[in-house]
Design a protein around this nucleic acid. Structure first.
Length: 428
RNA sequence: GGUGGGGUACUCAAGUGGCCAACGAGAUCAGACUGUAAAUCUGACGGCGCAAGCCUUCGAAGGUUCGAAUCCUUCCCCCACCA
């Protein structure tokens, strides 16, 4: 997969994909000169990466495809400090065990994107390995000495926090990141660090440190911040929660649906960002968005591609089939028992248990909504019902009770909230 | 340590003794319209409850009062300036 083709190619590729924010001037020459080792850092603040991390991951992927060597750094050490970049308030510190567990989980997720075999095999490192045993005196002598406070205060990440306060700990973050870069430069010959555009300041601090301690140059590259056309934050599901790469947190079906829901105005960019489809293929899909937007061909391609990469080709196929079942087939009452069996694994499912104080005869739909976690409380469920937001087996319902005769094959109820939130209940 | 300002629901932000579950905006959810899109309009938006109503909330704990987010006391935290 990673035959060395044209080492300078990734820049051209990143450029047409609109993934370049800024980079150091002589980076093109460095990439053209031969394989380069490049790294991106990931914060182990959660036990899973989310779709917001995909851009830097894809950056590594493109680099590796062009024959360079990608290194993913898990911030087991820096994660205990917290990066002030892009944040308005102080972080909560996390304990060691949590961070170690998170770092390991993230490592496994990254392994899905990068090739760890071959001449330019990817590598995973954890900065706890060198930061953990770093002494304060040593750090101040060798690293702190190279930075003036004036320089540090001029960085955006610090400047924007001066009004509301920033702890000494977070203030020091950029030095630790700089130290990481220097350390990787020494250990692994890394000469390129990449990251989101908010990382520019931290990355250049690293360049500074390498230049001052070793007298050699290194490079920086940043990716643009991703925005949605409607101004909302990228990477939030319709429920407002993050879209995670971990199937336990965000099911493959939900994940697939997240991409299916992409705005027409965004989908072309997302194809460039998050898939490896060629410019020709994407241009063809763009054309389809223009001529037949209602077919959502681009969204389908996007969802299928990303789901397959993050989960598996199988998971993507199942998500696709389930989506077709829920959105494209006519009457749920015609669903076979086998089809319902497949749904059970993909959408929220609950065994029905009668509420403690039954309101009437039959099956209590409000209770089902609570069981399925589709509604937070019975009161919320009731409001949804009153507003006509609830369908059972494809038909709107206005009453809280449905008779047992409504049950589908295998005694199930298919419940829908709004346009696209489904749940399945089995009545024993 | 001193002086002044501030801590209100997911976020921003009104509210200075009863009309406050708390103005408004954003976010979110639902409905109409649609294409699983956008925009627009409508409604909902602390919890429980069919309802009447009950319960919990305005940094924390006490107190005054028939009644407090609003007044008093102590404490915690943030910001600015001064030392």
């Amino acid at each position: 997969m990673s035959a060395i083709t044209n080492s300078a190619a990734p820049l051209a590729e990143l450029a047409w994909r609109e993934l370049l924010s800024q980079h150091t001037e002589d980076l093109p020459a460095a990439l053209a000169a031969g394989p380069v080792s490049a790294y991106v850092g990931f914060d182990p603040t959660a036990s899973s990466l989310h779709v917001g991390n995909l851009i830097p991951i894809m950056g590594l992927v493109h680099l590796q495809r062009a024959g360079h060597r990608p290194i993913a750094l898990v911030g087991g050490g820096t994660g205990m400090i917290g990066d002030p970049s892009g944040r308005s308030s102080e972080r909560n510190l996390q304990d060691l065990d949590t961070i170690a567990a998170n770092a390991e989980a993230i490592r496994l997720q990254l392994a899905k994107f990068l090739d760890f075999e071959g001449p330019n095999a990817a590598k995973l490192v954890n900065n706890l390995d060198w930061l953990g045993g770093l002494g304060l005196i040593e750090f101040l002598r060798d690293t702190g000495k190279h930075f003036s406070v004036n320089y540090m205060m001029a960085k955006d990440s610090v400047k924007s926090r001066l009004e509301n306060g920033i702890s000494y700990t977070e203030f020091t973050y950029m030095l630790l990141q700089a130290y990481d870069y220097l350390e990787l430069n020494r250990r692994e010959g890394v000469t390129l660090q990449m990251g989101g555009s908010d990382q520019w300041g931290n990355i250049t601090a690293g360049l500074e440190l390498i230049r001052k301690s070793k007298g050699t140059d290194a490079h920086a590259l940043t990716f643009p911040l991703i925005t949605n056309a409607d101004g909302t934050k990228f990477g939030k599901s319709t429920g407002g929660g993050s879209v995670w790469l971990d199937p336990e947190r965000t099911s493959p079906y939900k994940f697939y649906q997240f991409w299916m829901g992409a705005d027409d105005r965004d989908v072309s960019r997302y194809l460039r960002f998050y898939t490896l489809l060629s410019l020709e293929e994407i241009t063809a899909l763009d054309e389809q968005v223009r001529s037949a937007p209602e077919r959502r061909a681009a969204q389908r391609a996007l969802a299928a591609d990303v789901t397959a990469r993050v989960h598996s080709a199988d998971a993507a196929r199942v998500a696709q089939e389930v989506s077709a079942l829920l959105f494209e087939k006519g009457d749920p009452r015609a669903l076979s028992e086998a089809a319902i069996g497949a749904l059970r694994n993909e959408i929220p499912f609950a065994e029905y248990t009668a509420p403690e104080t039954p309101v009437g005869d039959g099956i209590d739909v409000l209770h089902c909504l609570v069981l399925l976690n589709i509604a937070a409380s019975r009161g919320a469920a009731k409001r949804l019902l009153e507003q006509g937001g609830i369908s059972v087996n494809g038909a709107k319902v206005q009453t809280a009770m449905v008779g047992h005769d409504a049950l589908l094959a295998g005694r199930h109820l298919l419940i829908k909230k709004g346009q696209r939130d489904f749940g399945l209940v089995h009545v024993g």
